[in-house]
Design a protein around this nucleic acid. Structure first.
Lengths: 193, 193
DNA sequence: ATTATTTTGGAACAATCATTCCAAATAGCG
DNA sequence: CGCTATTTGGAATGATTGTTCCAAAATAAT
């Protein structure tokens, strides 16, 4: 019986995600969001509850639709060690397109809100763990096939790789020079040898 | 002939720095700032010009009065390699006091503002370079006295260490578990061997 | 003590904040 | 077509934003 929504809920969420990604949470006003999403106040509050709830949804949407596919694409068909290297090299490739320079929404949000926002902190921890596990699995496989050094336990090395990635994403958003970025990214091999 | 200021300009700046450190830039309102600094509007705008200018001053004040002394204290009297390790272990020690959990003001600010704030980006780049140079110098010395592996050029390894530090400071502010933090920090040795 | 100069406290400002609310418009069902 | 449930657009809300402004207070020099 009811009227149907005049906009695509997921599309609008995706636009919101992009805006948060570029500008952060506090710097983004409701007016900015509504304009970016192409909807208006009534529809917004009816659909997404409020700004903070939208952020949490945007974070999940980001992991599912940006991070996960990006990781899958970068690593598909590659041997474990090459997969790890590819994850980092990919950041280098993307450093010159607009989106790539905004770093990672998860990390940006973690730094802006985690200390005073329990809900955000929880999401961040879960996603860090997932990323760490992914690295750990790749390390195990790489150590098994002999391409990654065994002088460090998989768990430790996996976490070290996650930490390395966090650093790279900080450098990206900090807009450091390409030289600096290349220099750091190319050191992944040092961690694996 | 004039009246003298009723407050200590540097003390108030220090309080502002602490508030920015804990809460970030956008989340901090002028009311918050004035309360934290213990002064009022007239005095503020007369002395510090405006909120954005204050942030830049706070950043410099932070590097000079928090980072520099902290690094000096952590490394004094230590051999190069031990100095590097000490810089990281220090983060672990501090992880349970309130201030330590807020990460690093420079990095927090970089992630929040660098993409859209030229002045902040400039400061960030200069300070990153200083930190990198410091690491590079220590690496050179460590390689000279044989305590640090020579399989990597000082410049490269120095930057890698800076990147490692950025990651650790992200993890700190993200409030990850002590286990996770220890695990990552203890891997510094892997980078130096 | 008087004068000159600066700071101080806070009222006032226009702009913007996130959110609420509701009449008008709309679309599916009978 | 008419009924009804839902969405839509936007006016309105009260709170808060960063900044300006100025009279009153205070101090150092004359």
């Amino acid at each position: 019986m009811p009227r149907t929504k005049a906009f695509d809920v997921t599309d609008a969420l995706d636009k919101a995600k992009d805006y948060f990604w570029a500008h952060g949470y506090e710097s983004t006003s409701m007016d900015d969001l509504l304009k970016a999403m192409g909807i208006n106040r009534g529809s917004f509050y009816d659909t997404y509850e409020n700004k903070h709830k939208l952020l949490l949804d945007a974070l999940d949407h980001y992991i599912e639709n940006d991070i996960a596919p990006s990781l899958a694409k970068a690593t598909e068909g590659l041997e474990p060690r090459e997969a790890i290297v590819a994850i980092f090299k990919r950041k280098l490739k993307r450093m010159n397109d607009p989106q790539g320079r905004f770093g990672c929404l998860l990390i940006n949000t973690a730094l802006e809100l985690a200390p005073h926002d329990e809900a955000v902190a929880k999401v961040v921890h879960r996603r860090y763990d997932e990323l760490a596990k992914r690295f750990i699995r790749l390390v195990k496989q790489g150590q098994a096939d002999g391409t990654i050094s065994k002088r460090c336990k998989p768990t430790q090395l996996g976490r070290l790789l996650l930490n390395h990635l966090l650093g790279v994403l900080v450098l990206l958003r900090s807009r450091v020079s390409e030289t600096m970025l290349k220099s750091v990214i190319n050191q992944v091999d040092l961690l694996l040898d």
